[in-house]
Every structure is written in C-alpha cells, then in structure tokens.
Design a protein around this nucleic acid. Sequence first.
DNA 1: CACCTATGGAGAATGATTCTCAATATCTAA
DNA 2: TTAGATATTGAGAATCATTCTCCATAGGTG
Lengths: 159, 159
Amino acid sequence: MSYVHLFRRYLREQGLPVTQQREAVAEVVFESGGHLSVDEIEGLLRERGEKTGKATVYRTMEMLVKSGLVAERDFGEGFKRYEHLFGQMPVHGHLICEECGGVTEIQEVELKRIQDRVAALEGFAPARYRLEIFGLCAVCRAAGHELEWKGLSCPIERV
Amino acid sequence: MSYVHLFRRYLREQGLPVTQQREAVAEVVFESGGHLSVDEIEGLLRERGEKTGKATVYRTMEMLVKSGLVAERDFGEGFKRYEHLFGQMPVHGHLICEECGGVTEIQEVELKRIQDRVAALEGFAPARYRLEIFGLCAVCRAAGHELEWKGLSCPIERV
DNA sequence: CACCTATGGAGAATGATTCTCAATATCTAA
DNA sequence: TTAGATATTGAGAATCATTCTCCATAGGTG
Ligand SMILES: [Mn+2]
Ligand SMILES: [Mn+2]
Ligand SMILES: [Zn+2]
Ligand SMILES: [Zn+2]
C-alpha cells in the first residue's frame, strides 16, 4: 500500500504544488525500510529512471520532515539520514555499532516516559527527541570484537 | 585548580609530545563551563594572546575527546561543540530550546540505567551515549511562546 | 487552453572540517 | 646541554555535505 497520499495531502494543506519530483522522492523513501542518506535516495531514484536533481531531493526531504512523516537522523557519519515513521514509534532511538555500522532500533516506550519526566522537572516542553547509543552490537561481540578503553588510564569517575 | 596535568599524562601515556599549543587549548576548554565551538575556543585563545592555528585546535580536540576528558556534542547547529567532563556525569543529555538556543544539562542517573537495560536486551555493549531533547525551555514558555504542530493535520499516531 | 506563480536543476557558493608540506618545536640519549 | 631523530604547526588548499541562484518549465486555477 502507498502512503504518498498523506504527503500529497500535506502539500495541499500548505498550498504547495504537488510535483512529480516530490511524489517520486516520497515514494522512494516510503518504500524503503532503512535509514537513507541523500546519496542513497538519489541512487534509488536513478534506478527507477527518475532524473531528480540533488537540490530537489534536499528540498523535498525538508518538507517530508516538516510534515511529520519522516524523521531526520545523524549517526555521526558527516551526513544526514532519513526514515519514514510508518509502523514505528515516532520517538525511538538507535543502537549504532562502531565496528560494523549496523543500526538497531530502540522502540521502548519506557524511554520516552522517563525522558518526558526529566524534561518536566525543568519545566521544559519536549518536541523532538534524539537518542543514540554507540558501542558494539551482539553480532560483533560474538565475533570476538571488544570494547577497549583507549583514553586516560585512570580516568575521572564514570557513572 | 588546574586539570591540565591529566591531559599531559594522557599525552605521555600515548607517547605524544606535550606542546604549548596542546596545553593552551586544554586550559581554555578546562577553564570554561560551557559547550564551546571551535570558533569560540579560537576566540578564547586569542584573548589570552595565544596564536594557535585552527587546524591545531581541531587536532587537539580530537585528542581531548579520545582521552575521555572532553565530550563532543552536536546541537544541530551545523558544527560541533565540546565540554570537559569534570564535575559532571560523563553520561548526560541536553535539553535544547528551539526558541532561545539555551541548553540545560540532564544529569539523571536513572536515564543511564534504562538506556543500559534497553541496550542489554539487544546484547549491545554501550560505549558512548547521546541524548538531546529539543523543545521549549521554561523561560520561553513563561514568556508566552508555544510549541505548535506545523506538520500534517491528522498525523500518524504519536506515542 | 492560458495565465500566473512556484518549482526544478545545473552549477556556483558556503562553511565546517581535513589535508599538505616546509619550517619548527619536542624528545631522547649522550 | 647539545645534537639528531621525529612529530607538530599553521597557512592555505582541498573536501564534501548542504544551500543558494536564476531562468526555463511544470502545476494550479478558472
Ligand atoms: Mn530508526
Ligand atoms: Mn553538557
Ligand atoms: Zn556490529
Ligand atoms: Zn528558551
């Protein structure tokens, strides 16, 4: 099934033209399950025979994020990644393996609850959450890789 | 009191020369309480009469982060910020006000515990944590600012 | 269909970060 | 303390993701 009609509706609500390029970008993102970079989105568009300029992809991603249908991520690679939120909790974090680069979703509701509680303590109204935990995934651990502390030998106290 | 001797120790442990520039950068960062950008660090060095090149600041920040004495942050501004970890929990998050840009520290131990629990469920070994919550701070709320949903009018379910 | 306006795209511009390389500063051992 | 071996510095070039510019063209309206 297609979710593009939701993006179309958003564009109309905002009085923005529904163009072929905008629909193509949304389709490619909605059909993918992963966390896509702009380069990867361009590649998928090319595979489908669409000739969409890089600037248009960037502009459309901005709209998709504003619409709330897509979230922007940063896994510390030097560029952004995007994922649609269909079938996912809009507030979810990521476990990122520093060995293999694999990404695992954190979908625990409990995490949002405590984050909200802490924010409320400060009188803060949360709008957007970002949680990323970098380390070693189960597969890489099983393969014998290990985390090793390469910093100061007797560091300041760690919690 | 000065913490620079810890960085000096780290450099010696790694067999790296202790240079005037490295000490100057560490001093400036250790003496500041905030979340500093590379530009701000350069400014502070200039105020002290040090002539340290931008490249050296970047290189030294990388070492300070590797040593574990300093953490790298990204508040979505398009550049990195750095803070020393003396007197703070090494695992702490940030509340970032989208109206005024203010940053509040989240020092709750409970947050690390549940993050670790969730990671453990996946067999993941955590090494580095990043939690940022964007929204409206108490001051801006009191001043009448409000969060408003500008996305799709009838969005997908939100948790 | 025809008009008006906003978009699309190629390539230039931007800006943070990294790289290059010759002139120095640091380290070590005598 | 000095000399020699080695690593660092810093100015500016290079990189690279992202944004901007501008005009030919597509989308919306009636
Ligand atoms: Mn995800
Ligand atoms: Mn902090
Ligand atoms: Zn892995
Ligand atoms: Zn504020």
